[in-house]
Amino acid sequence: MSGEVKPRVRVPGTAAAGETIVIKTLINHRMETGLRKDSDGNTIPRQIINRFTCEFNGETVIDVAVEPAVSTNPYFEFEAVVPEAGEFVFKWYDDNGDVYETTKAIEIG
């Protein structure tokens, strides 16, 4: 990876209890497929985000098994129910073992 991997998520700061909210996530990542060759003809090893998860207060919202066909800078959009105040935890799992994590707190109001 060239440059730092930086996740971005968009979550509203507040919601009514039980409200449905839209969540958007984006992370900068090459998503190297393992199918490309470099200029010397050597295969560039696969390195992708292979899993993305979103949890709220320990309960799963979405868990995605990600394959190389997902585009560079993977983008996911989905909707969650917010039963109470708490914290969303987002994780992106890299083939190299790294896990990129970010959190977003949400208030009930």
């Binding site: 497929t33 199918l35 799963t60 394959e67 066909a69 997902v70 996911f76 989905f78 909707e79 969650a80």
Partner: peptide
Amino acid sequence: ASGNPNPDVGIFRFGPLAANQAASTRIR
């Protein structure tokens, strides 16, 4: 993606706090 060298794109699994069983992404 039926025409890709590897047809797998992904599997979205929805947990109890998914408001609906829907998702958007961008693919090759």
